[in-house]
Design a protein around this nucleic acid. Structure first.
Lengths: 364, 364
DNA sequence: CTGAAAGCGCTTACAG
DNA sequence: CTGAAAGCGCTTACAG
């Protein structure tokens, strides 16, 4: 905890008023920018205010939450968070609010935020809380309701209770466009590396994959569908499994860019080239998609805008607006870069490792 | 600006006290965790507090700044800021403080922060302000002093007035280690791409380059020293200039990782391979150094620790500790990855573009 | 332990 | 325009 100790005391309004030779109410008017003050009086008071370094303390009552919103992120130094932070900060600035970074849920135990954090939040007040990628428990929701703290979710892992703003991307459609792109290139043996097996947010992308395959008359084999918990290292391991299959895929759709990076690593370890030997598509369009070689073709998720939208919805509700209907889905867009190409001719029937043999022959 | 309007009013202490059938002072004691309350009374009050969702408002006087610190960053979605944010947040959490993101200086005009931001900062109070990569004007310093707001600088562009904590990395030594590494590989035609020509922070790295060259008995040619304002695109342009020279370098030291990325781009455009044709060393060790191919050899700057250190120094001073002497410099470390190798034999005398001709011959 | 009384640092009518 | 008076939402002694 902070010290509440000595520290040079700033002057009170009374001191300023005395210095300017006016009453306290008059000084108060100047501080609050009221009009009914004579120019000369205003000048004298302003000077005293400046000279003494008066610091105004807003009165904080439950009716007047401080002009700030809380952003809860799990990991502060990911490029994901960077995009979200920027979107939130811009929208907050527009609304005259500042942004407090909350580590509360980061240091969660068993899904429960630190009691300290909750207490402090209630203590200082907030105009609202924005949860990024969060999975709140019923206890959280109850607590927020009880304290009448408005909140909203950015790309929630689970859908929040009805009436709570939740903004995500068009996961199913986005995934579909990724797979359709691979299909149009001529791939049929397309694998998918999903995020969490059971969570709705990532199952929508796998569903998009299935839908695109089905629309092309293809039934994806069970062994082509893997899950890697949105983790780079796990995706790398899954890729090794995929390419140890009797019939490895010719293309892989990763349900997130960080997982695509894991696929890149595994492919490099296997001596397979992207996109000549294997095509890879990601999902997110984080900055690393451009830094990697070859630059990653991926589905762009408008993170900044998602974050800004969530904040605006929160504010609208707080000000008495109607709650948004269901989850808001912002459109995605396929960004074609250099990680995809038509499949290698013989790849269908041969192990991909035996590259040198396949140069001239043609498969199916 | 925010609305200060209706909003469901939280209960006042008086309401809670009435509900618990105690006096206001007694309710106040419970809220403040005082000991002199009977257990049963405390229970009744606590229940009323919870049931009514009472939100405590700390009294904010100049003697009691809110338990929060402000972090001012220029760009929220860079990996640099991510590292700094994380370091600050961790150190702040340790100290029981929360972190407010300030866009104030981001939206600066002519070096002056928005008046709005300054006013608001004074209004709500802060335990201190941390400036990241900032260049403050005398006006800023005066304002901060007048309002008795403690502050510190993380990797300042210009050194702040004496007595103000400033934490950076050992720029000169770090740069020297980068160039010594290239020297030890056998390079002699080593170019440097610096940040800002006139700013102290980046000139220290160029000085390190010169020192290492001099120690090896080499005098760097003037045309091998370029400046690119810490900008990727500019670094790319400078690289094209460098390799249009009659005698292009065999290695380039970039004074930041983002500039190294620009060098990568230019080299790819020129058909030059890293590290076979040209070696590249960066400075920072941001995440992208690992994502790029080949992985970048670079000088690691402990950003998280720099940020945490700046915060701790600020807090120590606020609590009456002695100001740190001069700028604090944290040690750097060369991280060897895959962007450096010995120079190509003939590279000294031939244009690097003519690769195929040089395979078997040997130069100086 | 409890709470009436006084005080703090304002702000809000409102009389002049 | 100005400021005495009343009020707000507490907290701080302190008497019982």
């Amino acid at each position: 905890m902070t010290r509440t100790e000595p520290r040079p005391a700033g002057p009170t309004l009374a001191v300023v008023a005395r210095a300017a030779a006016v009453s306290i109410p008059t000084a108060s008017k100047v501080v609050n920018g009221r009009k009914d003050v004579a120019p000369d009086t205003r000048r004298r008071v302003t000077e005293a205010l400046d000279a003494l370094g008066y610091v105004r303390r807003p009165r904080l009552t439950p009716r007047h939450p401080p002009p700030l919103i809380d952003l809860v992120v799990h990991c502060l130094d990911s490029t994901w968070s960077g995009a979200v932070l920027r979107g939130v900060e811009e929208a907050a600035h527009e609304a005259g609010l500042e942004v407090m970074i909350s580590g509360g849920l980061t240091r969660t135990r068993g899904g429960r935020p630190e009691r300290d954090w909750l207490d402090r939040l209630a203590l200082r007040g907030t105009s609202g809380v924005l949860f990024n990628l969060a999975e709140l428990s019923p206890t959280h929701y109850a607590w927020l309701e009880q304290h009448r703290i408005p909140y909203a979710m950015i790309d929630p892992v689970l859908d929040p209770p009805p009436g709570v703003p939740a903004v995500g991307a068009a996961n199913e459609r986005g995934a579909r466009s990724a797979v359709e792109h691979l299909l149009s290139l001529g791939h049929t043996r397309i694998a998918v590396v999903g995020g969490y097996r059971r969570k709705q947010c990532s199952s929508a992308r796998v569903a998009g994959y299935r839908a695109a395959m089905a629309a092309a008359g293809l039934r994806p084999r069970a062994e082509y569908v893997r899950y890697a918990d949105f983790d780079t290292a796990t995706a790398r391991a899954r890729t090794h499994e995929l390419f140890a299959l009797p019939q490895p895929p010719t293309a892989v759709f990763a349900c997130s860019d960080p997982m695509a990076l894991g696929i890149y690593q595994a492919l490099a370890e296997l001596g397979l080239r992207i996109p000549q030997d294997v095509s890879v598509v990601g999902f997110d369009d984080l900055p690393e998609a451009e830094w990697v070689t070859p630059a990653l073709t991926t589905v762009r998720q408008p993170l900044r805008e998602m974050a800004a939208t969530a904040l605006r919805q929160l504010l609208r509700m707080r000000d008495g607006g109607a709650p948004p209907g269901a989850r808001t889905e912002l459109p995605t867009r396929l960004v074609e870069r250099h990680s995809t190409a038509p499949p290698r001719p013989l790849a269908h029937d041969q192990r991909l490792g035996q590259r040198s043999l396949c140069r001239t022959t043609h498969g199916t």
